[in-house]
Design a binder for these strands. Structure first.
Length: 535
RNA sequence: GUGGCUGUAGCUCAGCUUGGUUAGAGCACCAGGUUGUGAUCCUGGGGGUCGCGGGUUCAAAUCCCGUCAGUCACCCCA
């Protein structure tokens, strides 16, 4: 018998990619299912697009230079150049622009696809990774409110905090921080640094660098500043002709004002006027006042604080983001020793750039690689010690709703009874989305995925985006969302609940009135799971 | 594209400086024994072209050159 040589070819996993065996996939799902559950509870709808696009879609925004960082390819005998998607924003903008006229405004979309970048892999950066994107596009009422001169009047820049309206920026930051909370990333581990390109421009003016306002090189310099040594920083600054000391001092001054807002729990009476007085900018027209760019940040911070997010937030004007397309609010989630975990901001011109109508928009992206590293380093990844049942239970608890509603239909739709209760809607919605953690779990120092974490699990709660007070229109809005329960909150915290399908009142199990106060027995959140027809 | 480190059993690694028996350990796996759980414990066993190619040498896992892969950092960062 002739000897036969078996030629065996071995194939290797491409550089920068990962194989997901059952255990690894489960860990990935712990992250992605948490993202999905949190997105749903905050009223975002999931979308997806093609894995590859025409390469033009990416070069139109960033120039031809980006091609070297794309995996691009052509069909056999074809001319068109395609590219695996390196990010979602162009696809999102394209999809939104295509259907803009028929889409509800605002439009809240999230996606959890994988992306591809032809870079050299290193810690926290691979060639294929997953990224969670959340975006709010085309705020309807919000835009009108901004145009209302009373809201940005110099005499009271904080008036918006009393209105209690949802703003797109706050919605986006809320869903972002809520995901960190879900995974146990407390403010001691991660921080959300908040900046604003227009406020940064203000700092430039205060620092005597007026000529650099809007200069992309400044964004680049400041974006890198935290990574460079002081010598190199001075060198880089001098290269474009600015004094780093002067600029830095101006930024810190503005930041102090921002910190004051956060630390005072959202009530600030004199922060901005003080700043203005100090710099002799008191004589401002309304137009100039708005150009300072502080009104948005000054509204956002108290709003976020009212939703229980203040402990993560910190104003930091050196957050400007490297990308050209941001126009206002910008933010990054940072942790010790890691590259940015998430980043995003407002991009009001981008939809238009992709052929849509002028559309205000705000969003962020969070990758699974850096997040996974961070969770593992802090003992916050289930199954890390090899305990597979822990991992299985964790994923099960998330996907079945034991750790919070994953109902695509809103569990509850919240409106105010009258003007006096307007300010109570958003905090209640935020509280319902956050849930109430149990004392046993807290005392035990339990893990984020433990089944007994919540006495009141987080719910899918939504406010209205409409400005109307007409009850029939609000009911229609609730029905359009396919919400289950209609909640009307009155001044003082009493709440009335109605089943939207039957229009019948829903009474608390132990009688009396529902309450917006999470410490009370009849807290609205109790309805979750205790009524079969609602769960 | 540039630089540092790493590559030895299925996994985690020791051995390399200073070349020299048959290349080792733990875990995992297989068999037998003990045993009132398929746990524990005891005994034995299988398993390695030392990433690949070339060079130096009587002799290379070890020294030299090349190459591939991984990883970290730089560049870049949507």
């Amino acid at each position: 018998m002739a000897s036969r040589k078996i030629s065996r070819t071995t194939f290797q996993r491409p550089t920068g990619t990962r194989d997901f065996y059952p255990l690894e996939l489960l860990k990935r799902r712990y992250i992605t299912e948490t993202w999905r559950a949190v997105s749903i509870r905050h009223g975002f709808e999931e979308i997806d697009g093609p894995t590859f696009e025409h390469a033009d879609l990416y070069t139109v925004k960033s120039g031809e230079g980006i091609l070297s960082e794309l995996f691009s390819f052509k069909r056999e005998r074809g001319d068109k150049l395609y590219a695996l998607r390196p990010e979602f924003t162009p696809t999102l903008a394209r999809m939104y622009a295509d259907k803009a006229a028929s889409l509800p405004k605002p439009c809240r979309w999230f996606s959890i696809p994988s992306f591809f970048r032809a870079e050299r892999p290193q810690r926290g950066r691979l060639r294929e990774f997953m990224q969670w994107n959340c975006d709010v596009m085309g705020e309807g009422r919000e835009t009108e409110m901004l145009l209302d001169p009373e809201l940005s009047a110099p005499t009271n820049p904080l008036v918006a905090q009393d209105i209690g309206l949802a703003s797109a920026d706050t919605d986006v930051i809320e869903v972002l921080l809520s995901s960190l909370d879900s995974m146990g990333l407390a403010p001691g581990i991660v921080q959300c640094r908040l900046g604003d390109r227009r406020v940064f421009d203000t700092a430039l003016r205060l620092g005597g660098h007026e000529q650099f306002v809007g200069d992309a090189r400044m964004f680049d310099l400041v974006d890198k500043s935290s990574k460079l040594s002081s010598d190199k920083l001075v060198e880089a600054s001098t290269a474009i002709g600015v004094s780093w000391n002067q600029l830095n001092t101006a930024m810190r001054q503005v930041e102090q004002e921002l910190d004051a807002i956060v630390q005072s729990g959202g009530v600030v009476t004199d922060g901005l006027p003080l700043l203005v007085a100090r710099k002799g900018l008191r004589e401002l027209t309304e137009e100039e006042w708005r150009a300072l760019g502080v009104d948005e940040l000054f509204r956002l911070l108290p709003e976020a604080t009212a939703r229980g997010l203040g402990r993560w937030l910190r104003g930091d004007l050196s957050i400007v983001r490297g990308l050209a397309y941001y126009t206002g609010t910008v933010f990054e989630v940072l942790a010790e020793g890691e590259r940015a975990i998430a980043g995003g901001g407002r991009y009001d011109n981008l939809i238009e750039l992709f052929g849509g109508p002028p559309t205000p928009a705000c969003g962020f992206g969070m990758g699974d690689v850096v997040l996974g590293n961070l969770l593992a380093d802090h003992g916050l990844m289930p199954g890390a010690s090899g305990d597979t049942s822990e991992l299985m239970d964790a994923v099960h608890n998330i996907t079945t709703g034991a750790l919070g509603s994953v109902s695509l239909r809103p569990d509850v739709f919240v409106v105010s009874a009258d003007e006096k209760a307007d300010g109570d809607v958003i905090p209640l919605v935020a509280q319902l989305r956050r849930g109430v953690e149990s004392d046993v779990w807290r005392e035990r120092n339990g893990k984020p995925w433990d089944a007994d974490r919540y006495v009141i699990p987080p719910m899918h709660a939504r406010p209205t985006d409409k400005s109307t007070r007409k009850e029939d229109k609000l009911w229609k809005d609730a029905q359009r969302m396919r919400a289950k329960v209609f909640a009307t909150v009155s001044e003082g915290g009493s709440v009335q609940l109605k089943n939207i399908d039957t229009r019948e009142d829903v009474a608390p199990p132990s009688g009396g009135e529902w309450s917006a106060n999470p410490t009370e027995e009849n807290f609205v959140g109790q309805l979750f799971g205790c009524h079969g027809h609602l769960g």
